[in-house]
Each structure stands twice: as C-alpha cells, then as structure tokens.
C-alpha cells in the first residue's frame, strides 16, 4: 500500500538509483547496484498486490458509462487529439509515411474544425521523412526505438537507435523495456536502461512500453509502471501492438492508478499511452471514462493520455460526422490512410 512512509523510501531510491553515473561506472560498482535494486524491489513490493478480479470488475463497470450528446462530441474530439497515428510495418515507405502525416494534420479533409492528431509514430529510419512532411505543424513525430518491438539488442545498439531517431527530429521516443530482465527479476537493469535511454532522448519525451501482454499479471504491470516512472518516463505505454495481447481496459486502469499514485507522491504527471487493438470509438470512449474516473481530468489531455492506433482514427471521424449531421457516412467519404 502506498503510504506516507513510502515518500521517504521513494526519495532514497530515487537518489541512489538516479545518481549521475555512467553505465560502466554503475556496472563496475555492482554492490551499490544490488543495494539499490533491493530498495527498488522493497519500494514496489510495498505497493501491495492487485486483485485481478477486482480490477476487471471495476473496468467492466466503468465500461457501462454512457456518453451522450455534447459530452460525446467533446470526447470524440478529445480522442482524436490524443491519437498517435501509427505505422510500424516492415513494408513502410516514405510514401506511406507521407500520406499518414497528411492524414494526421488534416484528419477529415471536409471539415477543417476537426482537430489534428497528437503525433505520428514511425520507425527511426522514417523519422526524417515524417519530420519533413509535418514541418511546423503541431503534430509531433514519435518514433519507436530500442530494438522495437522485442528489445533484444545490446544497450549500446538501443541507445544508438534512440540517438538516431532524436537526431532525425523525433519529438517523442517510444522505447521497450527489457521484459526478459524484468521477468527474471533484474529490475535494476530495467531501471538502468530506462535511465540511459532517457538521457539519450535529450529534450525528446520518453514513452516507456511495458509490453503488458508479456508481463501477464497486474502485479507485474504495476511494478513495471513504477520502475518506469521512477526511472524518468514521461509516459508509460501498454504495448507494442506486436504481441497477442495488447491494451486492455483493466491494464489501463492499473497503469492509471499507478500514475495517479505517483503524482500524489511526487507532483509529477506521467502520461499513459494505450496501444494496440483499439479500433472503435466506443472502445476509445471507454478508455477516456477510465482516465477520467481513475487519474482524473488532469489526464484528459494529449500531453497525458494517448491512443496508439491507426484504424481508430477513421472510426472516430465517422462518429464525429454522425454526431454533427445525425447521419452515418460511407467509409469512402474519409481518406483510407
């Protein structure tokens, strides 16, 4: 359970783990590392468990919230503004990225009141193209890095991946944690990698992908959320979209509880990004309800909540038109990008 005493241990852990040491120094003084990993572990264990049934029941109940009329219209626009329009395929080309960026800036060509999305999300080698197309538009360029999606590469390679993306103009970096390290109990290593990546990001924002589908349990998801937040994540993100289980409502609930509790202790607002499998407006609105009733309205902002998605955008746009005109449109009235 999070209680006042935790604030103290939080400070201790932060100061010992966040010492400005280089990776090699850190590895050299392995005893210090063990001590701080133990502290990290004890802090996170102190948060207590998550009851899976309770979490799922709570999210299912929130999913029954009904948004009507003006609140629905506002929520759809909010959701559009939170989309990280994503393409992460081996077949991605500059042309594909260009059309995605255009879509991101002008989601509904026929209605200029439509908000633009938050960001486009691409692989590092396509960041420069995206940056070029988006120019000075408010749409950010996000890039997955750190040997996405598996993260199975040396730290050196991961850091280089990040550095290249940042150099090419990425505003946001979506990194993956080392799930192997996490599941084998090397939480300190997970932490250190995030710290190192954060340093490599410079001024770019860091989103830390937990890959919740591979962590499996809510206890793990809560622990990984805290490791990421303590290590300096600007966002914690559910998934790569590349494994069987992606974002789920209860997963998001657990992560939103984590950012809420973290902000109570530190006054820092860490964002949450849900990714993978969110395709319908109905689903997106359920997430917004969970955000609203868990972390609160301070998270109802693109700086604090994102949807990593592609096909979701067109469904949001169709619903937006429906809300405005009262009639359903044909899908072909919207661009297919």
């Amino acid at each position: 359970m999070v209680h006042a005493a935790l604030v103290d241990s939080l400070n201790t852990v932060s100061s010992s783990l966040l010492r400005p040491t280089s990776e090699s120094e850190r590895l050299a003084s392995s005893s210090a590392r063990v001590a701080s990993e133990a502290e990290l572990r004890s802090l996170i264990r102190g948060l207590g468990g998550v009851d899976a049934v309770g979490v799922e029941a709570r999210s299912a109940k929130l999913a029954t919230r009904s948004l009507k009329k003006a609140s629905k219209v506002a929520a759809i626009d909010l959701a559009i503004s939170m989309v990280d329009l994503t393409t992460l395929e081996g077949a991605d080309t500059p042309g594909r990225v260009r059309s995605l960026c255009t879509k991101a800036m002008y989601p509904d060509a026929s209605d200029p009141t439509t908000p633009s999305v938050a960001a486009v999300c691409v692989y590092p080698d396509l960041v420069a193209h995206a940056r070029f197309v988006l120019g000075s538009s408010p749409v950010a360029v996000a890039s997955v890095a750190t040997a996405f999606p598996s993260g199975r590469a040396s730290l050196q390679v991961k850091l280089l991946d990040v550095a290249e993306a940042v150099a090419a103009g990425a505003d946001e970096i979506d990194m993956v944690i080392d799930r192997g390290a996490f599941l084998s109990g090397r939480w300190g290593q997970v932490f250190d990698e995030i710290v190192a990546v954060k340093a490599a990001c410079g001024s770019a924002h860091l989103k830390v992908i937990l890959e919740t589908g591979e962590l499996v349990t809510y206890d793990n998801i809560r622990a990984a959320s805290w490791i990421a937040m303590l290590a300096g994540a600007d966002f914690i993100k559910t998934s790569t979209g590349k494994v069987t289980v992606n974002a789920t409502l209860p997963t998001a609930l657990v992560m939103l509880e984590a950012v809420r509790d973290f902000s109570e202790l530190t006054a820092q607002r860490v964002g949450v990004k849900v990714a993978g499998g969110i395709r319908s407006t109905k689903d997106a609105l359920k997430y917004l309800v969970v955000v609203n009733e868990t972390a609160g309205s301070a998270w109802l902002h693109p700086d604090a909540f994102r949807f990593g998605a592609s096909s979701l955008l067109n469904d949001l746009l169709m619903q937006r038109r429906k809300q405005r005109t009262g009639a359903y449109i044909r899908p072909d009235e919207l661009s297919g990008d």
Partner: peptide, 9 residues
C-alpha cells in the same frame, strides 16, 4: 490545468 471538463450528459 487541461481541457478539463469531461462531464457525462
């Protein structure tokens, strides 16, 4: 502060 109000009609 943020976009803030997210009321349910």
């Amino acid at each position: 502060s943020t976009l803030g109000s997210f009321s349910y009609d």
